[in-house]
Amino acid sequence: MRNRNAAPKPEVVLAQQLVFLVVLLATWQFASGRLIPAFYISSPSDIVAIVWKWLADGSIWLHVGSTIITLFMGYAVGALLGIGFGLLLGLSPRTERLVAPFIAALYGLPKVALLPLFVIFFGIGLVSKVALVASVVIFLLFYATLAGVRDIDRDIIQSMRLMGARSDEITRKVRLPAILPWIYTGLRTSIGYALTTTVVSEALSSNRGLGFLIEYSASQFNSAGVFGAVVVLLVLSSVIMIPLGMLERRSRPTRPSR
């Protein structure tokens, strides 16, 4: 007798997913201009056409490149600063207690509100966008690192000290390994926020990037352009998430249950 709860084979699932996608696209294509005006929902064929045109004339690479540069610079700067401050304040609890409420208040602030300020400081361009992305990432990594520092087991440190470990050995063998999984987690979760912030900053104050392309196309009432830019963004975000999966595998599978 067949087991009804058995999971279907992966190839079967993939085939079902493909069928689902084809049906969805066909419905969309059919509805466009017949049930709903193409002005609102464009159509798969128009979207393919416009993305193809962007690829053919190479104009899309300016935007893709700009988005990638903003994303990774903001992410890197924010992560480095966040980890740095997290370690610094984690290891000096008294200062941490002093500044904790201020950091919490800033963390709660929607960072997009700071964009005009950054534009005043740095002008319209790469730097103000990077600053905005960094301002989002920095808090996420700060709190992740701080949690990691707090996760260090005092008893383990003492036992290492009794064994004769020097301070630097304890840092290498206990403190860092205890903090690293937290940092991995922080890096993993913050990339999504970083991408969101990048796109928003491009839409609000820029003349390039996928966010700008979406915003610009919309202002021209070019729905195919909006959808086309979204599709490119979709591909880009998927490409970014693959290395993240690898990062995930690096963090250990066995954590103590506490």
Binding site: D153, D155, I156, Q158, S159, R161, L162, M163, G164, K173, V174, P177, A178, P181, R252, T254, R255, P256
Partner: peptide, 18 residues
């Protein structure tokens, strides 16, 4: 200070989980 001449097996083990 921490007495490095002794080996101490504490009641709660202090193995490194990683």
């Amino acid at each position: 200070a921490a007495n490095t001449r002794v080996g101490y097996m504490t009641q709660k083990d202090t193995l490194l989980p990683w």
